[in-house]
């Protein structure tokens, strides 16, 4: 069973790699059929990935987001789910070329880490765990996608300003759509992050006896929250748009990366297990 899991993960990795390649080809050639292949591949990858997660869940007997390996896999999964939803809703294939590589990189990194199933820490034997952790990853994915859109915005903006725009300028959505969509994802991510933090305080109160401990992960998630809160207000009150909003979204995503990875690298705190 253990090897089955790893082979499935390898399969997922390959499919996402192919998906990335197809999205890039679609962007380069501007042929719709490549985009369609890429979408189909991504759906197939998601199906295998979901099966992998379910098998892992069954084998371990708990929601498999309890260590770095499992969390990276779930992060990739949530990004792909969110991307496919967005592609279905707004019909933008070009985003895939920027987002599916993130899922690929997360799985690739995960494959380098120890993947054995370990017994569940008593702290995580709580219903809050099943809400807090998945929600946080959906928040991270929304921010990741918003950052990808901001990168697209900045590239496109540069292309437009240069007198001779590159061919793919014509294949990206308009600046206005990129800006609006990026902000939409920030709204989703920000609301999910707020709920994640609040549920975290409820759990923390039950488990550690205090709803706020100022431990590194909590503090950094608050810092990310403040960065995005600033952007939300900047937009609704002072009308931050375009480049400024794009840079700010990238800054926000940097703090999110630090919340997710940096805190684990530089010192555990109470969140040390993940």
């Amino acid at each position: 069973m253990f090897h089955l899991h790893l082979s499935l993960m390898l399969g997922v990795l390959i499919v996402y790699a192919l998906g990335t390649a197809f999205y890039l080809i679609a962007l380069k050639t501007n042929e719709i059929r490549w985009g369609r292949y890429a979408t189909r591949l991504t759906y197939a990858g998601l199906a295998v990935h979901t099966a992998t997660l379910l098998i892992r869940w069954y084998e371990a007997g708990y929601l498999p987001i309890t260590n770095f390996y499992e969390s990276l896999s779930f992060f990739a999964w949530s990004i792909v789910v969110l991307y496919l939803l967005l592609e279905y809703r707004y019909d933008i294939h070009s985003l895939g070329a920027f987002v599916i590589p993130i899922a690929f990189a997360a799985i690739f990194y995960a494959m380098l880490l120890p993947s054995e199933i370990r017994p569940l820490n008593p702290l995580l034997q709580s219903a809050w765990f099943k809400v807090h952790v998945p929600l946080s990853f959906f928040a991270y994915s929304s921010f990741a996608m918003s950052a990808a859109l901001s990168v697209m915005y900045l590239i496109l903006e540069k292309q437009i300003k240069s007198k001779r725009p590159h061919a793919f300028y014509y294949r990206l959505p308009s600046l206005e759509v990129l800006d609006a969509l990026s902000y939409r994802l920030i709204s989703i991510g920000f609301s999910l992050l707020t709920i994640t933090i609040i549920i975290g305080t409820f759990w923390s109160l039950k488990a550690w006896g205090s709803y706020w401990e100022w431990e590194p992960k909590q503090t950094w998630s608050l810092i990310s929250w403040i960065i995005y809160a600033t952007q939300v207000h900047g937009r609704s009150v002072s009308g931050w748009r375009g480049k400024k909003a794009a840079y700010w979204s990238l800054l926000g995503f940097l703090t999110i990366i630090f919340t997710y990875l940096g805190v684990n690298v530089f010192g555990g705190g109470l969140h040390g297990f993940l």
């Binding site: 920000f190 609301s191 707020t194 709920i195 609040i198 305080t201 409820f202 550690w208 006896g209 205090s210």
Partner: peptide, 28 residues
């Protein structure tokens, strides 16, 4: 054992819940 006495907890609990409501109203 951790020992804690915090009379602010009920207020924090209630208004954290209303905050979720407010955020949902604002963004969805």
């Amino acid at each position: 054992l951790q020992v804690a006495h915090d009379p602010g907890v009920p207020i924090v609990y209630i208004f954290c819940s209303t905050m979720i409501l407010g955020v949902m109203m604002s963004f969805y």
